[in-house]
Amino acid sequence: MTPPPPAARAEASPAIAVRGLAKSFGPLPVLDGLALHVARGEFVSILGPSGCGKSTLFSILTGIERADAGEILLDGRPLEPADRPFAWMPQRDVLFPWRSVEQNVSLGGEVAAGLPRGEARDRARALLADFGLEGFGGMRPYQLSGGMRQRVALARTVAQGRDILLLDEPFGSLDALTRTELQLWLERIWERERWTVLLITHDVREAVLLSDRVYVMAQRPDGIALERDIRLSRPRTLDTLRGADAAELEHELLVALHAGRPV
């Protein structure tokens, strides 16, 4: 028997699958029957307008909010509260000013993975080196630029040692130049590490540059307006975005994103 193609295998046993997820705040439905999945080692983005329930999805996945209905499957079986497979990276870096850069990163290992302090620190040091932040470990967060702070925040997320990274508009608060720089940096480091990533963004170009697959969430709570594979070859660079394929994808996603909205 020949093995199924990668995409089909991913669908057969996704690392994480969400089905029929519903959540209301009072009378206001935010999510109503949302379904999506992410395969192991896959980079998936959710594109959506503000207020479409993207962040609520992350709150439910991380256990901060409870879903009204629906199921979350981890490797095919229902997610248990003790599983905690997700490492969340908030939009604002939330680095603790009272901790050094290295201590901020090691927090991920100390708290999420329950590592002894020394071990968490060693892991933090190794991560900082991997992330091009060698020599910055002893600094305080306020001494770093916005882009570097975001990198430290990602290192703290990875340091948690969890299976799936949830990145919540990680570059949303950066200036355009730094944002592009960090997107390209994330693409390079993801090539190397192949984390399983679910990224929330409203930056179409970011989604195209980074993702294997993109979901476009509709303004309405009933879920996904479009699901699109991004079959652009890796490693991706600024040149990738110049190509006709990328331009076509960007256009298609942009149209889906603006469907039903006044232009």
Binding site: T62, G63, R84, W88, P90, V94, V111, A112
Partner: peptide, 17 residues
């Protein structure tokens, strides 16, 4: 910061931590 507390909760931290 709200996000800081949310972050700690997603890491599984309890009240004391």
């Amino acid at each position: 910061e709200r996000d800081a507390i949310t972050l700690m909760r997603t890491m599984g931290a309890g009240w004391a931590t």
